[in-house]
Amino acid sequence: MSVRGVLRLGEMQIRVLDMAAAKQHYGTRMGLHEMMTDDDGLVYYKAWAEQDHHSIVLRESDSSGLDHLAFKVYNDATLDELEKGIIDFGIAVEKIEAGIYPKSGRRLKFTLPTGHEMHLYAEKVQVGNSMGTLNPGVLPDEGIVRGFRINGLDHCFIVGPNAKQNLKLFTEVFDFNFTERVCDPDGNELLMFVSCSSRAHDIAFGENPEPGLLHHASFRLENTQDHVHAADLIGKYSIPVEMNDRHGVTQVKTVYYFDPSGNRNEVFVDGYLYYPDSPLLTWTIDNLAHAAFSQSLRVPESFLGTYT
């Protein structure tokens, strides 16, 4: 596949209630690398394998949740094309100058139909993964891969009203592929999964009356042993776990846990390879147990009821 246009989820800015606790969680426990603290006290992190300067930004606040999500696009011309598309879709776009967001090129800023603030950007300072680009080898120095051994920020799941309008925007304007859905008995989509890559989802949308809420931020692991290792650390440090299971939807092996502010995180491994000619998969809500947690077939009441 030739990936152009929108590349990946490149950044999430997450509100936390206690920065010291959050830094211990995302930095010490999960093993993300702290890159900088800006003048406003926001703390920036990257996963070791990511090339760009940061992917997670933490902001201390009196409520938890998501400030914004941002996708990186292929190049500056892509921003111009997408800006027109977003405006034609009926959504107002604010242009943000380069440098306003640290280490970042210019951005398009707009509000999704579900009420979430989203950005698109083409440039972010690349700091690399510590191995360089000339004869890089295969393994970073000891201590670089650490904590949960997370390779990168992967996707997020957001909920709000008009989720189907998000689906329309992402598939029609951003050229994502509609990969999987969970439908009610009348065939209406409740949960929608879309991809701009060879994975089964780069973002998911859920229908929910209250706008702008975060279901989870998800991080990619390298292999099954690292998944077991992460789950063992989650237990060791008494991090609250919601489920350790496999999703029917997307087929990933998952652990859902919460940060110290109640924001849901996921680490996952596996999942099938998606191509643009892969068929749309449909799950019916009466089969939710298999769709959601295909090993235990148990869906915690909190899983589709609590958001931040």
Binding site: P240, D259, P260, S261, G262, R264, S302, G305, T306, Y307
Partner: peptide, 12 residues
């Protein structure tokens, strides 16, 4: 009572 995030964030 229902448990959610166990972390003071979700409110349930």
């Amino acid at each position: 009572i229902t448990a959610g995030c166990y972390s003071g964030g979700c409110g349930v």
